[in-house]
Amino acid sequence: MTDRKPGSNRKARVVGLVALSILAVVFLTPVYVMVVASVKPPNQADAIYMWQLPESLETSGIEQAWAKLKPNFVNSLLLVLPATIISSTIGALNGFIFAKMPFRGSNVLFASLLLGMFIPYQVVLIPIVRFLQYVNLYGSISGLILVHVVYGIPITTLIFRNYYEQIPSEILEASQVDGATPFQAFTRLMLPLSLPGFVVAGIFQFTNIWNDFIFGITVIPDPAKQPITVALNNLSGTLSIEWNAVMAGALIAAIPTALVYVVLGKYFVQGLTSGSVK
């Protein structure tokens, strides 16, 4: 299907593959440093030895990291999955309205919604804690989900609004003739076309929430309920740090996100085909 596309002649393809391979090597260099450091003994896991292969394979860093991260791993899943799904869904609905059902002042409203992304989180910590206590959600994963959903809405709305903009409105006009309600138009016509939007919003939210540290540490004081990033941070002490465990921990903590990319990755290309939006 791509055969007739410009840029797909043989020479270009070879050049493209070579360029991709070189870039891939460059991109993986820091990852290589991490992997190698994670299997070194603690005193070898330092900048001085960063390019050297480990003298002996040591699993103590990995074991130490896994023992500390395991209990908080589940907490993070409990947090990140609902928060990602809810904020993406809300973002899809909002984006649909801003893109396909604009009203007087909707653009101003949209712009002011976007500005909400830029608020520095450090200063809202105290109001957040007070608010969550007020609604009795402080210290719970539900409270943390609420915070992530709220601060995720501007971004997911933006992603979906721009995504739906691309989809021709004729589809919807046809449904209006059919007398479908806006909600029906959304669920039947837009949602089936929304997968790439959900993939992009999902990846962004999943990664951001999974890697969030500052909300996790302030909203949940009980170590048994804290997300994995807090445990990852605590792999290093204040004045005593074993980098092999920290590197191993970072790689372990990255597994779920990486899995999401692998699973969802191919839907970037497949999710939207020209036939369905013509």
Binding site: I126, I217, T218, D222, N233, T238
Partner: peptide, 17 residues
């Protein structure tokens, strides 16, 4: 309850909130 980092600065932030 413990939180490391920043020479105790992270812990300080949590305590402040």
């Amino acid at each position: 309850g413990a939180v490391s980092g920043g020479g105790g600065a992270n812990a300080q932030a949590v305590l402040a909130t």
